[in-house]
Write a protein that binds this DNA or RNA. Sequence first.
DNA 1: AAGCGTTTGTGAAATATTTCACAATATTTC
DNA 2: GAAATATTGTGAAATATTTCACAAACGCTT
Lengths: 229, 229
Amino acid sequence: MKYFTNACPAPGAGLILPRVKKSGRIIIPRKTIYRLSIYLRCLARLKENGLDTVSSEALAKAAGVKPTQLRKDLACFGTFGTRGLGYDVTELSSRIADELGTSRLQPVILVGVGNLGLALLSYRGFEKEGFEIIAAFDANPRRPRNKQIAQPILGMDVMPKFIAEHGVKMAILSVPAPSAQEVANHLVECGVAGILNFAPIVLTVPEDVMANNVNLAIELENLSYFIRE
Amino acid sequence: MKYFTNACPAPGAGLILPRVKKSGRIIIPRKTIYRLSIYLRCLARLKENGLDTVSSEALAKAAGVKPTQLRKDLACFGTFGTRGLGYDVTELSSRIADELGTSRLQPVILVGVGNLGLALLSYRGFEKEGFEIIAAFDANPRRPRNKQIAQPILGMDVMPKFIAEHGVKMAILSVPAPSAQEVANHLVECGVAGILNFAPIVLTVPEDVMANNVNLAIELENLSYFIRE
DNA sequence: AAGCGTTTGTGAAATATTTCACAATATTTC
DNA sequence: GAAATATTGTGAAATATTTCACAAACGCTT
């Protein structure tokens, strides 16, 4: 049986991989964390289809990896399978969700309400995944006409207060490249610990802050390399 | 000097890494390809700032990697530096662009004009990176009110003809998850060789087709893991 | 044109990740 | 309840990637 697929995760996930250092906890490789998210989504689909248990072979196939890799990934934080049978779908889901820290709803803010920022605001895909964009900020906070945006769009000046009051730990950064580093610094000062960066620059952040980059142009460029004949 | 940064590339980039098999050409690791894209963007910024030459140390710092890694990456496809001086910014840019296949403009189509698809259509960031979304397709191709979309929005039925006529090799897939695999199959049949998939499922595609995934929820989930205290 | 200071390019070492192979252990069948 | 079947968990091997260390090569200065 072949498990090969050309599918690969989103763009940035493989570039710079600082070691995962969690004081007192077992180190889980960065790539494993990404795969855990994928397993979680596959498990959700299996549950919808009424399956109670799943083997590593079946789940691995759904996730596009090899069964041994799946088992090694899970071994990083416990053993929950039943030999001869497989994994309990519900139990495995909740253990992975616990491990990822997504078992509770995370408030997220968005900074930079331009073209892309606006699109992300109106995108409803986050909610059912445990995240909610609760507000947006922009240097020029005018509400766009003709758009059904549920979230308030606020000025940058009220951002520190808002972050503190709502305990915001994660931000989506969709400002233009030239101001991205400056805004990121501002976010870090306010206590934000995770930044999802859409600006096409390499952010420099303190060691205890995590910045993930999503760069659509780089994704396309990557494709264009592989499709050359 | 420290080069450490928590910045990392977009989500999917590191999960499943099939070996790069290019008949007759030297194998370049997938991660190297991603970094080449980053170097290219850093070089563009350096050129804007009027620099003619750059050392591996300076460029690596800008890209958030170590100098040795940058040199090893470049060594995959030639030697262009001048010892004691560094690299010629313009020459290195064009060599990398050649290698990535972005020296010429690539026509791209978008399939699935929902919330996210619409956002990507109105996003102007691709053009200056060598890509142009020349048309969009949707099962229900109505033109959105109140939106300045330059591209035609066409029905799925005319897609095969369009792809053939315009020599389209790359597609952005932003349809809902349940229909993503089916549409992907359709694209592959039409001759599309590279798919940038925004649907939250693992696409199965033939070996000679490349599918890169961008999953914003997974990116957020990844952040949430690292910011747990 | 010789010497000095810099910076590349690269073999080798170190590290990380994936895959293999199989023992251990459960379920199912008869 | 014993045998057959299935599937996990994991040490070890294989593979891949990153980093080191340094020789080679160039520009610049005098």
